[in-house]
Design a protein around this nucleic acid. Structure first.
Lengths: 210, 210
DNA sequence: AAGATAGTGTAACATAGGTTACTAATATTG
DNA sequence: CAATATTAGTAACCTATGTTACACTATCTT
């Protein structure tokens, strides 16, 4: 664990802090698709990502959902931090997008370290700022971009995170993440296929020229 | 200034910190409509709101804009904090929505106090969390609500912030904040008037039954 | 007062995207 | 293997919202 920590967080955090993380943190290795946080749960820890990616989404009663952001290597999730420090129930769902490795930090340490380690403090602040910026970027996408553009970005982003040039999702699943409907997504995907940018298959999509 | 500080922040922050704020802070009183921050500027301080409200919006080259959130009494603007600590140029515009009173804190104090005053630390964190939640709520509105619902909320919110049951904005200005077009807003407003919920006048709108 | 400008009302039309309904292909299960 | 469920393709239609164009009025300027 320490080696991983040093590799990913060595340039970011104090060496002595890494030691301490090594002592109090728990290593967790989870498979793609595993739910890490469900809405309504109390969150008592935050994750430090070593590798992989966690997808953070909002879910609603009517089954609707909204993709908020991805947490990747070298980052943590400030939404869960918010919940931690305020002892509130989670309003979000977090799912491993790919096989993911992270270290869990119990919440009483978070505050303690902020007082003791300047670099931890900067890290936590930077993380809040990153989230704010990502939320802003999501907001702009939803507000200004048309669905076809958002779809293309979705495909690229999924491909990037999965490190492949294909997407293993059904049209229905894509529609849910972009909170659109299956028929509309099928229609737009077919258009992209006709333009030669992708190739459609059952359960997966090849990105041939995106 | 100290009296105001104690009144608004007395229950939130340490008494000794209030003293210190009183020494290093600058009192600023500005009129409704004044621009406080323009995109591209460097931000070297953060505001602590005493009274009034500051509207924070994003502006784009094509003249489009997007309302992000309001900063009100007892709050600060974490977007500017983000800019402060990272020495980046502002990507947002801040305008006084009504006559506003606030205290300006120079940025080197922000970090210093985080180390020294636990309650300041909590305040700063809470403020980040508030912004995240407000951004989330904006995102949900843009993503899920129809324009007529968003328009009604806009009218109510403006009315609340201005402490009146009328809105002093032209249809064009409303359209810009909701990034819609004047014609569409006029149409929807007329519908609301026909429902007896508002009364339209030149340059202002009465909220009769909203 | 004449003209210019800004704010509003309204009609006609365009389009992105949502909805419903049906078909066909593929996968899963008993 | 038959039956069923999942996934995808496509057509027809609807609606919210955007666009263009023009008329009318209130306000400001000179």
């Amino acid at each position: 664990m320490l080696t991983d920590l040093q590799f990913v967080y060595g340039s970011l955090l104090e060496a002595s802090l890494l030691q301490e993380i090594n002592q109090v943190g728990t290593y967790r290795q989870i498979q793609a698709g595993t739910e890490i946080i469900r809405p309504g749960e109390y969150i008592k820890s935050i994750p430090l990502l070593i590798s992989g990616a966690i997808k953070v989404i909002r879910e609603y009663d009517d089954g609707e959902e909204l993709l908020l952001y991805y947490v990747e290597e070298g980052n943590t999730c400030s939404m869960s931090m918010a919940c931690c420090t305020e002892q509130k129930r989670s309003t979000i769902k977090a799912v491993a997008e790919v096989d993911t490795l992270f270290i869990v930090i119990p919440n009483q340490k978070i505050e303690e370290w902020i007082g003791r380690y300047p670099r931890w403090r900067s890290f936590i602040f930077a993380s809040y700022q990153n989230r704010l910026e990502e939320m802003l970027s999501s907001l702009e996408k939803v507000a200004f971009e048309r669905l076809d553009e958002r779809l293309i970005e979705h495909l690229k982003e999924k491909g990037r995170i999965n490190g492949e040039n294909s997407i293993h999702q059904t049209h229905k699943e894509i529609a849910d993440e972009l909170h659109s409907s299956r028929v509309v997504i099928s229609r737009l995907l077919k258009k992209l296929e006709n333009l030669g940018q992708i190739k459609l298959h059952r359960n997966y999509i090849e990105l041939t020229d995106l």
